[in-house]
Design a binder for these strands. Structure first.
Lengths: 221, 221, 221, 221
DNA sequence: CATGAATGAGTCTTCATTCAT
DNA sequence: AATGAATGAAGACTCATTCAT
């Protein structure tokens, strides 16, 4: 929400609204200026509010950043968890769903990926992230491994190790995120999804169809 | 080189020596404090030199950072290029060599990966990186694709697309780098190399042996 | 009154009650944090009221502080004036009474002395104090001098000058206040009273008995 | 030194000179604005230097204030210690010298007294003062007591307790300091010295001559 | 009368850069 | 070529005061 739009907002608002408003503004500014370049004046200006509002609602810049990171982490967790727990989905559907959840436009807009890497670029926030997300990351690893194991048994795949494949899926996913901001013309969300599908087809040919082969847009330029 | 050692050094030194000394110090400090937390006083203090030396040799902080990034990029490029151009190596050896070059201790120490992601965390330096390295990154992509194509033809692999596999290799590599600093107990250099081998075995079973399956240390914790 | 107790109080209260409540809170907070460290949020929080209440009743922080100083000054003036005007007391009783009134626990609790010196520490409030209290201070000086003069005539003391003794009494009193907060183990209220008695005994031996000689607690440590 | 004069000073100066320059400026500004009102910009502006210089030489505002307090405390200590240790002085001369050292124009200018009370007005700096000066204050108490004891024995004074008189001297001194800034027309340095002499004459009539009786200037107005 | 969210001017502090030596 | 004292712009944070409810 821009400052212009914000001028029409009421002078006071519930705590939750203001906090979310500030977190949204923070993510927007972070994407552009990263952590070192993001000032509280930038954030509050973007939200159409006054400078003191951050201290009022978040006590400090660090806490605002941490809260914003938590917001992103929760959003991502919810995205795959809702798939994993959906009783109407089959195992292959769940596996594919989790694999591609990271590339949902809501989750992996260029803006949000930039913010993720802004945080990963600072040792301090890597630690913060680990402390807040270690449990969820474990859960996701376990979920992927569990689903892979189920498929391996079902399909009698003797050459696939669930553990290794789960790791490959997660790391490939992260690597494509990185290249999405480095070379957005090379790795697009659609291409990333096709790559994930590719990986699953190659390991579980009895369960997955060949992906559409997207023309690689233009190399890592 | 620590400040203590540095005190014994002569008061003057050739341009190149001083510049490399400062770049080394920069990489060391960046790994710990990232970009926003790295001050010129940190860098010069770590190098055992005076504050004014940065302006003398690099004109500005930004230029010192850019030079440091270039140093890392060149180091990485040299690592895979020397393999690619080595006439004594076979195609599979080259492919494996390039795939695992990123995990050479000299290239991917925890310190250096942290610095890479410190730069990737800032939009400004992603742009700088692209401008200085997109040529090399293209070259590497082309090299990988060329090697894959050679193997596909040689082995008659009909289900492998060179382009996609090259992309997978690069992204998987980057994703493991990220998880190496996020969860160093999970992804170790040895495990990363095994994962890369795994990928090649699965695509080119006639050319690569099964990798040693390292026990996955402890999940993404 | 603590915030907890205050929560039970009715939402509205007469002007005078609220004002006194705020002055009490101000004195309590000032004692601990002095003027620079006392915020309106501290004061209203201590009183269990909302932030806006200060503006409502006192218009500004400065006015609240000035009112608090006046409250202290009036309290002190009342303490000695009631003695001076008490028709049942003899001259020596009055002199002794005024001399020791400053050390009455109600007047000179550690908290209140700290507040006095908080105000004396600021040129601005020294000026305010002078404007509001110089009349009373003059009156007290005159009262002491008058009482001393009476005793001098009565006892035929030829070596005492009423004016100088009155000054000595007042300054000694102030100096003991200061040392009470600097070194509370050294100067206690009891010791201070004994010192004042000592002074009177030495100047008016025919009218005052020897004081109890309190063991000096432990030096200015 | 004013900003105008300061403009002619060299751009760099030895550490000690700059630090003393800043402490002098601090004392000047503190006298006028007290602690809450003194900004680093005030201090550096008064010294004719730039804002960053405080952090460079004193790390923080608090440390600059503490250093300034220490400077005052040392100055006062030196003033009486040099008298106490002067082998050419007699015991009465030393006693009188210490008693009146506090009123030396160099020590008790209106400016410096104001600064003393600015510090005494804050609990934080009372603690700091105690920690830095407790030893010296003890020494001075001991010195006064020792000198009084010597006179008592020499003169056969049976009605004087060295301990109590030393305390009276110190507190009277402090009280006159306070009234010097509250009512400078009432208590002048000369009058304060006369008061101290008075006290000594009354206790040790065989050793001290009657003081000149200064006309009390104008009451506590 | 009373509330407390919001404001924004003011302060301390940091730090890249400059410059006299 | 090298030093490091000095600069001053910029940022995070504080807090007296305002105002819509």
């Amino acid at each position: 929400m821009s400052a212009q739009q914000a001028q029409k907002q009421p002078r006071t608002a519930p705590k939750e609204v203001r906090q979310q408003q500030l977190i949204d503004a923070t993510i927007n500014v972070l994407a552009e200026k990263s952590i070192s370049g993001t000032t509280m004046a930038d954030v509050t200006g973007h939200a159409g509010l006054s400078m003191g509002i951050v201290s009022l609602h978040f006590k400090s810049k660090d806490n605002l950043l941490t809260s914003s990171l938590r917001h992103l982490a929760m959003e991502l967790r919810d995205a795959w968890l809702v798939i994993f727990r959906d009783p109407t989905l089959t195992v292959p559907q769940k596996l594919m769903g989790i694999a591609t959840a990271s590339f949902d436009p809501e989750i992996c807009s260029p803006k949000k990926i930039a913010v993720w890497f802004a945080f990963f670029g600072e040792a301090r926030y890597r630690k913060v992230y680990r402390e807040m997300a270690e449990e969820f990351d474990d859960e996701r690893s376990d979920a992927l491994e569990e689903l892979c194991t189920a498929l391996i048994e079902e399909g009698g795949y003797t050459d696939v190790r669930a553990e290794d494949l789960a790791t490959t899926m997660e790391c490939l996913c992260d690597g494509m995120w990185l290249n999405m901001i480095l070379y957005p013309e090379w790795i697009t969300p659609d291409y990333a999804e096709a790559q994930m599908t590719n990986l699953l087809v190659r390991h579980f040919p009895k369960h997955f169809d060949a992906p559409r082969h997207l023309p690689k847009p233009c190399g890592p330029t």
